[in-house]
């Protein structure tokens, strides 16, 4: 088990270094996803399978998809086609693919060992987490829901299309200046 932890830790560190040294945002994002998957493997070896699953689903899944959407939205126009072909080059995906293969190898090792369901003292089951979450930490859950609501309202407010309103105000200003000119 220790070897799996060390290999996953090495993968996480290497891919994180690659994230902060890449120039292309999509390349960095690929490495960031590999880094998060490596941390998920580390959670699993630490005996936190629920946290590992959430890391894959929420971090490597939902949050990274949000990043991809934002980066795609930033690259509008004909420039994006040339960039697309550049992104799909071998050089872009070979590094993350090798690191991800290492993680797949570790997953295969787990399955070959007879799955992760071996009962041992150190594993914190999802049931325990749920009992703690909706027991003593109930107030924290409510606060987290409030935070998510605030985040949603804030993102909607910032992402709103203000263009229409600005155009209208510009037009009103022009009309006013025309009237002043008369």
């Amino acid at each position: 088990m220790n070897e799996v932890f060390y290999i996953a830790a090495a993968v996480a560190l290497i891919s994180t270094v690659m994230v902060i040294t890449r120039l292309n945002a999509i390349h960095a994002l690929l490495y960031l996803i590999v880094s998060l998957l490596a941390v998920a493997v580390i959670f699993f070896t630490l005996g936190a399978p629920f946290a590992a699953a959430l890391e894959v689903i929420t971090y490597a899944g939902a949050i990274m998809v949000l990043f991809v959407f934002a980066i795609m939205l930033l690259n509008l126009g004909p420039r994006s086609v040339a960039q697309e072909s550049q992104w799909l080059s071998r050089k872009a995906w070979i590094g993350p693919a090798i690191l991800a293969l290492v993680l797949i190898g570790e997953l295969a090792f787990f399955i070959a060992r007879g799955g992760g369901r071996t009962p041992s003292a150190g594993v914190v089951e999802p049931k325990q987490v749920g009992v703690a979450l909706f027991g003593p930490y109930l107030l924290g859950v409510e606060l987290a829901s409030l935070l998510l609501l605030a985040g949603m309202v804030g993102a909607y407010h910032l992402g709103r299309d203000w263009g229409v309103r600005e155009q209208e105000s510009n037009r009103a200003r022009e009309r006013k200046s025309e009237r002043a000119g008369e």
Binding site: A48, V124, V129, A144
Partner: peptide
């Protein structure tokens, strides 16, 4: 289980922050 509970809170905070 407390560590994982705190991890869940960090996760939800990260989601709100990134949005």
């Amino acid at each position: 289980a407390d560590g994982q509970v705190m991890y869940l809170f960090i996760l939800s905070m990260a989601a709100a922050e990134v949005a």
